[in-house]
Simulated scan of single mutants.
Amino acid sequence: MATNTVIDARGLRKEFTVYKKVGRLKRERSIVAAVDGVDVRVERGEMIGYIGPNGAGKSTTLKMMTGILVPTDGRLTVCGMEPVANRRHLTRRLGVVFGQRSALWWDLPLRESFSLLRHVFAVDAVEHARRLDRCRALLDLDEFLDTPVRQLSLGQRMRGELTAALLHGPSLLFLDEPTIGLDVVSKQAVRSFLAELGATGDVTIVLTTHDLADIERLCERLVVIDHGRVVHDGGLDALHRRYGSQRTVVADLATEPTGPVLVGGLTGVVDAADPRRLSFALPDGGLSAGALVAQLAQSVELHDVAIVEPDIDDVIAKLYNGATG
């Protein structure tokens, strides 16, 4: 029976045995749960951000989903299959870009790596050419297609890794830190490519990253894991609401105000460095940014207006620290 669910994890748990030295000769054995009852469901075509602090259980979860690790407990299906028991078949359905592993041949030109991957996955030549042409156009690969992989810059190699992960037409793509260490231009190229790829709905994408700008620009849904448990599963807006973060309207007035500026029950806070600049923090569920600007324009002459989104880094830090907002 057909289903739109690509990943279905119920009560997923992974335990490791850890030995700790006690005294000079003895070792104490303990069981540590790296993943402790994760429930997550990902539907076809979704692009989700899967994040957490170091040691939270992200990598362990991904290794179970790709069939590298056997779960200790719980249920897990990926693309309708149990990952470990069907690892060979599942590999053909997955694209994986992990920062510590490469799918490219170090001493071969990039073009030849792509050709070898076509044979490894037994991809039809016409399909392979079509997918490669698309990646060449979107990721600007042509200038270094004939360069050995070992001579590529980090940004060029990452674009090559993304292409390699997609040439066999996977239905699920795992990305681990795809923009880490990249310069601004390369980051923008990778993000634009992923945004376009996600917009087609052809590939389900799970993105793990410490660069929260990637999450903000690419993912509508965010799954946050900490100490092996899911502590948030929802949109960024819900996360901001949960932890009390606020959008801010910053207004530059044509002239310095002669007194407090009050709009819709909100008082503008004067910038210490520029008395003509006022900031209005928008409470959740209160006056919208558009309504505030419209009312403000009726009472003062505006020179410029900007809407400042809450800093997701601060929100995530609150979440990790167990704040309740």
Score class of each variant (00 low, 15 high):
232 H>C: 09
261 V>Y: 00
82 E>P: 02
164 A>S: 02
299 S>R: 12
168 H>S: 04
3 T>R: 14
25 L>F: 13
69 L>R: 05
12 L>A: 10
183 D>N: 09
184 V>T: 12
11 G>A: 12
124 D>R: 00
270 V>F: 00
310 P>H: 09
279 S>H: 07
238 A>D: 15
40 V>F: 13
65 M>L: 14
95 G>V: 05
148 P>I: 06
8 D>G: 04
165 A>C: 07
278 L>Q: 00
261 V>Q: 04
31 I>Q: 07
219 C>G: 04
35 V>K: 03
99 G>W: 01
72 T>L: 10
180 I>N: 13
57 G>V: 03
319 L>V: 14
274 D>N: 15
70 V>K: 14
281 A>D: 13
49 G>A: 13
43 E>K: 11
86 N>D: 08
298 Q>W: 06
266 L>V: 06
45 G>F: 09
73 D>P: 00
273 A>Q: 14
324 T>E: 13
57 G>T: 05
308 V>N: 13
84 V>I: 08
245 S>Y: 13
28 E>F: 09
133 D>M: 00
75 R>L: 09
193 F>G: 11
256 E>F: 00
105 W>S: 01
148 P>E: 00
242 R>Y: 05
80 G>E: 05
293 V>H: 01
139 L>R: 02
183 D>F: 00
233 D>I: 12
210 H>W: 07
